[in-house]
Amino acid sequence: MTDPFRAAVGVRWSDQDRNGHVNNARVATLLEEARLQWRAHAMADVDNVDASTVVAALQLSFRRPIEFGPPVEIDVWVSRVGSKSYTLHYSGVQAGHPVLDASTVMVPVRPTDGAARVLEAGERRSLARWFIAETAPQQ
């Protein structure tokens, strides 16, 4: 079985809300940062690594508040590869405590018109290396 990619994502002071927790909208930014780290690593050998992708869907479950301080360690893996999209899953831990589970459906788009495009063979190979069945290995 493949291990997920682990990204350490720092929490900024400005991410907090009035309750001293990371604001729920900022958690999506933490996922984005983990996804960008994963993409730079996972797609490094793909010719069109700069090809645009968009988030078509986001599902996020909070397991406990994220607080300013230790980074959030976010595991990222692929759970599904379709013809024009793939699904990434995320599991986050802060200071040894599970804080989030999430998934995003990613769609590669053509730069000329923003329309969805078919995943290329090199992309499929790279995605396959990060494939883990939908249920995540727990951190």
Rank of each mutant, 00 (worst) to 15 (best):
Tyr86Leu: 11
Ser85Phe: 00
Val107Phe: 05
Leu36Ile: 15
Gln94His: 01
Tyr90Leu: 00
Gln139Gly: 15
Val54Met: 10
Ala40Thr: 13
Glu73Asn: 11
Ala116Arg: 05
Pro111Lys: 03
Arg35Gly: 06
Ala25Gly: 11
Val46Asn: 09
Leu88His: 01
Thr2Ala: 12
Arg6Trp: 07
Leu100Asp: 00
Thr53Ser: 15
His21Met: 06
Ile66His: 02
Phe5Tyr: 11
Trp38Val: 04
Gln59Tyr: 12
Ala115Arg: 15
Gly82Thr: 02
Arg117Gly: 07
Arg26Asn: 13
Glu120Asp: 14
Leu60Ser: 05
Arg39Leu: 14
Pro108His: 04
Ala44Gly: 09
Val72Met: 04
Arg63Leu: 15
Ala136His: 11
Met1Asp: 06
Ser14Lys: 13
Glu73Lys: 05
Phe62Met: 08
Gly10Gln: 14
Thr87Phe: 02
Val54His: 06
Pro4Val: 03
Glu33Ile: 07
Glu120Ser: 15
Glu123Leu: 02
Asp17Val: 06
Met43Gly: 05
Val27Cys: 04
Phe131Gly: 01
Asp75Gln: 12
Ala42Ile: 05
Glu32Thr: 15
Val46Glu: 08
Glu123Ile: 02
Ala136Asn: 06
Ala8Ser: 15
Ile74Met: 10
Ile66Trp: 04
Arg6Gly: 04
Asp3Lys: 15
Phe68His: 11
Ala133Cys: 08
Gly69Leu: 07
Asp17Ile: 04
Val46His: 08
Arg6Glu: 13
Leu30Val: 09
Val81Ser: 04
Trp13Phe: 13
Ile132Glu: 09
Trp77Tyr: 12
Asn48Val: 13
Thr53Tyr: 09
Gln16Pro: 01
Arg12Phe: 12
Glu33Arg: 09
Trp38Arg: 06
Arg110Trp: 03
Ala128Ile: 03
Thr29Ala: 12
Trp77Pro: 00
Leu36Lys: 06
Ala102Asn: 02
Met1Tyr: 08
Ser61Ala: 12
Arg26Asp: 11
Trp38Gln: 09
Glu120His: 14
Val78Asn: 01
Pro4Lys: 08
Ser52Thr: 15
Ala133Ser: 13
Ala57Ser: 15
Gln138Thr: 15
Val54Arg: 06
Ala115Asn: 12
His41Leu: 07
Thr135Gly: 10
Pro71Ile: 03
Pro111Met: 07
Arg39Met: 12
Thr53Met: 14
Pro70Asn: 13
Ser61Cys: 07
Ser85Gln: 02
Glu134Met: 12
Asp101Gly: 09
Ser83Gln: 11
Arg6Leu: 14
Ala56Trp: 06
Ser85Gly: 03
Trp38Glu: 08
Ser79Tyr: 04
Arg63Val: 04
Glu67Lys: 12
Thr104Tyr: 00
Val105Lys: 07
Ala115Cys: 09
Ser126Trp: 02
Met43Thr: 03
Trp77Phe: 08
Ala8Asn: 10
Val118Phe: 04
Met106His: 08
Val107Arg: 03
Val93Ser: 01
Met1Ile: 07
Thr87Ile: 02
Asp47Trp: 06
Val54Pro: 07
Ala133Asn: 12
Arg63Asn: 11
Asn23Phe: 10
Ala7Cys: 05
Met43Glu: 00
Leu36Gly: 04
Gly10Val: 09
Asp101Thr: 08
Asp47His: 10
Ala102Leu: 05
Trp77Leu: 02
Leu88Asp: 00
Trp77Met: 00
Ile66Ala: 03
Ala102Glu: 03
Ala136Cys: 10
Ala34His: 12
Ser83Asn: 10
Ala133Lys: 13
Leu127Cys: 09
